[in-house]
């Protein structure tokens, strides 16, 4: 009887494992399809918005005094005289073959331009986010542990300041102190990764300037998530086991509070990737944000289109990673 039940249980467990592998595969497949669809919708949206923006690239390139015939000839050369659907199809067709097109202004492949800018933007975003998390975790945990006491109030006030301060102003203060006065770090510019040491040093101040408000937001989210988690029944169970308040917080509350924190971090990373434009300008960094900004002002529409699409792809990829992180944190999400 017992033996039979055991065999049944083993079969049951094996069956469940098999199902979970099948479910996982189907999940990934479903995500890939939805990722592809999202990109398609995004491409159509980006294309139409860029088309709606006033300003003809050809007349912009030739200046205000150009003859209409010259402009028309350039438009034809650039393919701008073709009907919209055809141009959209041509763009997407090229994208599918990995060709992001050629810049109108610089006549260079856009893929290479974006790649070059990514070498600044990606490390910068990663550094800023790591720094933000490194500040936010101890601060958020401290505030949650001292909920309602002076330490908590001080931290909450500080984070509000951190969110309210304009980061470009903070960036300039950093430059004045660390670059101008102390001369520890460069005030701006980017020497390229051929000199890894100098490259890294030039990213430190911008990363700090970017990280501060993000750290403040993250610390607040972590604090409130921790406080909510600490009201749960299993925290009471942990206390009844004989864990101290501190052990309970570290061993039980923290991991349970991670889900909202991960959500915010995913959003912050996407923002940092392209939203660092003001900081890039303050520090003269050749990042992705500046590339897009310049392309817009030069009516280099094809660059705008392709760069924005790459960003959308990055955001979708980050969201996917965050979902995987949820599953890593929470076993209940693994079989969905």
């Amino acid at each position: 009887m017992i033996a039979r039940r055991t065999a049944g249980a083993t079969r049951f467990t094996a069956a469940r494992r098999r199902i979970s592998v099948g479910v996982m595969l189907r999940y990934v497949l479903r995500r890939m399809i939805s990722l592809g669809l999202s990109l398609l919708v995004a491409s159509a949206l980006i294309f139409s918005v860029v088309e709606l923006v006033p300003g003809d690239p050809a007349s912009f390139m030739l200046g205000t005094g150009a003859q209409p015939e010259t402009v028309a000839a350039l438009r034809q050369q650039m393919g701008l005289d073709q009907p919209l659907p055809l141009r959209y199809a041509a763009w997407v067709g090229a994208l599918l073959q990995g060709d992001l097109g050629q810049s109108f202004t610089y006549k260079t492949p856009i893929g290479g331009m974006i790649l070059e800018r990514m070498q600044v933007s990606l490390p910068l975003a990663l550094m800023a986010l790591t720094l933000a998390a490194a500040i936010a975790f101890p601060v958020g945990i401290y505030a949650a542990a001292r909920r309602g006491k002076a330490g908590d109030a001080a931290v909450m006030g500080g984070t509000q300041l951190g969110i309210a301060l304009p980061n470009f102003w903070f960036a300039m203060l950093l430059v004045l102190l660390f670059a101008v006065k102390l001369r520890w770090l460069p005030a701006g510019g980017f020497p390229g990764w051929s000199q890894p040491d100098a490259a890294l040093r030039s990213l430190i101040l911008p990363a700090v300037a970017l990280a501060l408000p993000q750290a403040a937001i993250l610390a607040r989210v972590l604090r409130s998530a921790l406080i909510e988690t600490q009201g749960q029944d299993y925290i009471r169970t942990a206390r009844a086991k004989g864990l101290t308040a501190g052990q309970t917080l570290r061993r039980h509350a923290l991991r349970n509070a991670l889900i909202p924190v991960l959500t915010i971090m995913g959003m912050q990373f996407s923002f940092l990737l392209a939203g660092a434009i003001i900081i890039e300008n303050v520090f003269y960094l050749p990042g992705l944000g500046r590339l897009i900004f310049q392309a817009i002002s030069q009516r280099d529409l094809i660059v705008v289109q392709s760069a924005v699409l790459v960003l959308v792809a990055a955001v979708i990829a980050v969201t996917f990673l965050v979902d995987l992180a949820y599953a890593a944190v929470d076993p209940r999400l693994r079989n969905r």
Partner: peptide
Amino acid sequence: GRRIGMIFQEPMTALNPL
């Protein structure tokens, strides 16, 4: 937890889900 143990009403939420 060593000399005095305790169990509660709601078993669905009494354990750490993670």
